[in-house]
Protein backbone atom coordinates (compact mmCIF):
# COMPACT_ATOMS: atom_id res chain seq x y z
CA UNK A 1 0.00 0.00 0.00
CA UNK A 2 1.51 3.28 -1.09
CA UNK A 3 1.99 6.33 1.04
CA UNK A 4 -0.81 8.88 0.80
CA UNK A 5 0.06 11.69 -1.54
CA UNK A 6 1.22 14.93 0.02
CA UNK A 7 -1.12 17.88 -0.13
CA UNK A 8 1.33 19.80 -2.28
CA UNK A 9 1.57 16.97 -4.80
CA UNK A 10 -2.22 16.71 -4.96
CA UNK A 11 -2.56 20.43 -5.52
CA UNK A 12 0.06 20.36 -8.25
CA UNK A 13 -1.71 17.47 -9.99
CA UNK A 14 -4.94 19.41 -9.92
CA UNK A 15 -3.33 22.69 -10.95
CA UNK A 16 -1.16 21.31 -13.75
CA UNK A 17 -3.09 18.32 -15.07
CA UNK A 18 -6.63 19.13 -14.05
CA UNK A 19 -6.67 15.98 -11.94
CA UNK A 20 -10.08 16.19 -10.27
CA UNK A 21 -9.47 13.09 -8.16
CA UNK A 22 -6.48 14.81 -6.59
CA UNK A 23 -8.60 17.82 -5.74
CA UNK A 24 -11.33 15.65 -4.22
CA UNK A 25 -8.76 13.98 -1.99
CA UNK A 26 -7.36 17.34 -1.00
CA UNK A 27 -10.79 18.75 -0.32
CA UNK A 28 -11.88 15.81 1.78
CA UNK A 29 -8.83 16.23 3.98
CA UNK A 30 -9.30 19.91 4.67
CA UNK A 31 -12.95 20.74 4.23
CA UNK A 32 -14.16 20.00 7.79
CA UNK A 33 -11.25 21.59 9.73
CA UNK A 34 -11.48 24.66 7.51
CA UNK A 35 -15.22 24.87 8.06
CA UNK A 36 -14.82 24.56 11.83
CA UNK A 37 -12.06 27.17 11.86
CA UNK A 38 -14.26 29.67 10.05
CA UNK A 39 -17.35 28.63 12.03
CA UNK A 40 -15.65 29.31 15.36
CA UNK A 41 -14.13 32.52 14.06
CA UNK A 42 -17.30 33.94 12.57
CA UNK A 43 -19.84 32.40 14.95
CA UNK A 44 -22.34 32.01 12.11
CA UNK A 45 -22.93 28.80 10.18
CA UNK A 46 -24.19 30.53 7.06
CA UNK A 47 -21.31 32.94 7.04
CA UNK A 48 -18.87 30.12 7.70
CA UNK A 49 -20.26 28.26 4.70
CA UNK A 50 -20.00 31.38 2.55
CA UNK A 51 -16.45 31.98 3.72
CA UNK A 52 -15.55 28.38 3.02
CA UNK A 53 -16.89 28.62 -0.50
CA UNK A 54 -15.00 31.87 -1.00
CA UNK A 55 -11.76 30.31 0.25
CA UNK A 56 -12.04 27.25 -1.97
CA UNK A 57 -12.96 29.41 -4.93
CA UNK A 58 -9.78 31.40 -4.36
CA UNK A 59 -7.81 28.17 -4.17
CA UNK A 60 -9.30 27.02 -7.47
CA UNK A 61 -8.70 30.34 -9.16
CA UNK A 62 -5.14 30.57 -7.84
CA UNK A 63 -4.22 27.05 -9.00
CA UNK A 64 -2.33 28.27 -12.08
CA UNK A 65 0.01 30.36 -9.97
CA UNK A 66 0.37 27.86 -7.16
CA UNK A 67 4.00 27.30 -6.15
CA UNK A 68 4.86 24.84 -3.40
CA UNK A 69 6.93 27.30 -1.40
CA UNK A 70 5.12 26.36 1.80
CA UNK A 71 2.87 23.65 3.14
CA UNK A 72 -0.49 23.53 1.43
CA UNK A 73 -2.27 23.91 4.76
CA UNK A 74 -0.31 27.08 5.54
CA UNK A 75 -1.28 28.51 2.16
CA UNK A 76 -4.91 27.44 2.58
CA UNK A 77 -5.32 28.93 6.07
CA UNK A 78 -3.59 32.15 5.05
CA UNK A 79 -6.28 32.53 2.41
CA UNK A 80 -8.95 31.68 4.98
CA UNK A 81 -7.53 34.07 7.57
CA UNK A 82 -7.42 36.91 5.06
CA UNK A 83 -10.92 36.14 3.85
CA UNK A 84 -12.24 36.30 7.40
CA UNK A 85 -10.37 39.55 8.14
CA UNK A 86 -11.77 41.09 4.96
CA UNK A 87 -15.28 40.04 5.89
CA UNK A 88 -14.94 41.42 9.41
CA UNK A 89 -13.80 44.72 7.98
CA UNK A 90 -16.73 44.75 5.59
CA UNK A 91 -19.29 43.84 8.20
CA UNK A 92 -18.79 44.24 11.88
CA UNK A 93 -21.87 42.19 12.69
CA UNK A 94 -19.70 39.14 13.31
CA UNK A 95 -18.94 40.63 16.73
CA UNK A 96 -22.30 39.31 17.82
CA UNK A 97 -21.36 35.65 17.77
CA UNK A 98 -24.07 34.67 20.21
CA UNK A 99 -26.64 35.52 17.58
CA UNK A 100 -26.57 31.95 16.30
CA UNK A 101 -28.39 29.83 18.90
CA UNK A 102 -27.61 26.67 16.97
CA UNK A 103 -23.87 27.19 17.27
CA UNK A 104 -23.60 25.26 20.51
CA UNK A 105 -25.51 22.27 19.19
CA UNK A 106 -23.49 19.16 18.57
CA UNK A 107 -24.28 17.88 15.09
CA UNK A 108 -22.49 14.60 15.68
CA UNK A 109 -24.55 13.43 18.60
CA UNK A 110 -28.18 13.12 19.31
CA UNK A 111 -30.18 14.10 22.37
CA UNK A 112 -28.99 10.98 24.13
CA UNK A 113 -25.52 12.43 24.63
CA UNK A 114 -24.47 12.76 28.21
CA UNK A 115 -25.20 15.89 30.16
CA UNK A 116 -21.59 16.21 31.19
CA UNK A 117 -20.43 16.10 27.57
CA UNK A 118 -22.91 18.74 26.52
CA UNK A 119 -21.90 20.86 29.44
CA UNK A 120 -18.22 20.63 28.55
CA UNK A 121 -18.85 21.51 24.95
CA UNK A 122 -20.93 24.55 25.76
CA UNK A 123 -18.44 25.84 28.30
CA UNK A 124 -15.56 25.37 25.91
CA UNK A 125 -17.27 27.13 23.04
CA UNK A 126 -18.47 29.91 25.27
CA UNK A 127 -14.95 30.44 26.62
CA UNK A 128 -13.57 30.47 23.10
CA UNK A 129 -16.12 33.01 22.02
CA UNK A 130 -15.04 35.22 24.89
CA UNK A 131 -11.44 35.30 23.75
CA UNK A 132 -10.04 38.25 21.83
CA UNK A 133 -10.19 37.62 18.13
CA UNK A 134 -6.40 37.31 17.71
CA UNK A 135 -6.15 34.72 20.50
CA UNK A 136 -9.11 32.78 19.18
CA UNK A 137 -7.60 32.80 15.70
CA UNK A 138 -4.26 31.52 16.96
CA UNK A 139 -5.91 28.80 19.05
CA UNK A 140 -8.07 27.60 16.13
CA UNK A 141 -5.12 27.56 13.78
CA UNK A 142 -3.30 25.37 16.26
CA UNK A 143 -6.16 22.99 17.07
CA UNK A 144 -8.16 22.83 13.84
CA UNK A 145 -5.52 23.47 11.20
CA UNK A 146 -2.73 21.75 13.07
CA UNK A 147 -0.25 24.49 12.26
CA UNK A 148 3.01 24.96 14.14
CA UNK A 149 3.92 28.11 15.98
CA UNK A 150 5.95 29.40 13.07
CA UNK A 151 3.16 28.64 10.63
CA UNK A 152 0.63 30.43 12.84
CA UNK A 153 2.90 33.44 12.95
CA UNK A 154 3.20 33.30 9.17
CA UNK A 155 -0.52 33.00 8.58
CA UNK A 156 -1.47 35.77 10.95
CA UNK A 157 1.42 37.99 9.93
CA UNK A 158 2.88 38.51 13.36
CA UNK A 159 6.25 37.68 14.94
CA UNK A 160 6.68 34.21 16.34
CA UNK A 161 6.76 35.47 19.93
CA UNK A 162 3.53 37.35 19.43
CA UNK A 163 1.83 34.24 18.15
CA UNK A 164 3.26 32.28 21.06
CA UNK A 165 1.97 34.84 23.54
CA UNK A 166 -1.49 34.72 22.02
CA UNK A 167 -1.58 30.95 22.26
CA UNK A 168 -0.51 31.03 25.92
CA UNK A 169 -3.15 33.56 26.87
CA UNK A 170 -5.82 31.60 24.99
CA UNK A 171 -4.85 28.32 26.63
CA UNK A 172 -4.82 29.91 30.08
CA UNK A 173 -8.30 31.41 29.68
CA UNK A 174 -9.80 28.21 28.31
CA UNK A 175 -8.20 26.18 31.07
CA UNK A 176 -9.65 28.54 33.65
CA UNK A 177 -13.08 28.36 32.04
CA UNK A 178 -13.06 24.59 32.06
CA UNK A 179 -11.92 24.45 35.69
CA UNK A 180 -14.71 26.68 36.97
CA UNK A 181 -17.72 24.91 38.40
CA UNK A 182 -20.29 24.34 35.71
CA UNK A 183 -23.60 26.10 35.90
CA UNK A 184 -26.61 23.81 35.73
CA UNK A 185 -27.86 23.32 32.15
CA UNK A 186 -31.37 24.31 31.29
CA UNK A 187 -33.37 21.40 30.06
CA UNK A 188 -34.39 21.72 26.46
Amino acid sequence: MGMPAEDTALMLRYAQDGDMAAFETLYSRHKDPLYRYLLRLSGQRDNAADLCQEVWSKVIRARAGYRPTAKFSTWLYRIAHNAFIDQVRRNRRYDDRSADPDLLADPGHGPEQGAERRRLRERLFAALAGLPEEQRDAFLLQEEAGLTLDEIASVTGVPRETAKSRLRYAAAKLRKALAEPAAPLEDA
Partner: peptide
Amino acid sequence: REASTDTSPHSLDRKVL
Protein backbone atom coordinates in the same frame (compact mmCIF):
# COMPACT_ATOMS: atom_id res chain seq x y z
CA ARG B 1 -11.17 17.44 19.67
CA GLU B 2 -14.08 15.84 21.46
CA ALA B 3 -16.29 18.89 21.26
CA SER B 4 -15.48 20.20 17.79
CA THR B 5 -17.23 17.76 15.50
CA ASP B 6 -18.95 20.07 13.03
CA THR B 7 -18.72 19.14 9.39
CA SER B 8 -19.08 21.22 6.28
CA PRO B 9 -22.56 21.21 4.77
CA HIS B 10 -23.08 18.86 1.81
CA SER B 11 -24.44 21.72 -0.25
CA LEU B 12 -21.13 23.50 0.20
CA ASP B 13 -19.23 20.36 -0.81
CA ARG B 14 -21.26 20.04 -4.01
CA LYS B 15 -20.74 23.69 -4.92
CA VAL B 16 -17.00 23.56 -4.37
CA LEU B 17 -16.49 20.28 -6.21
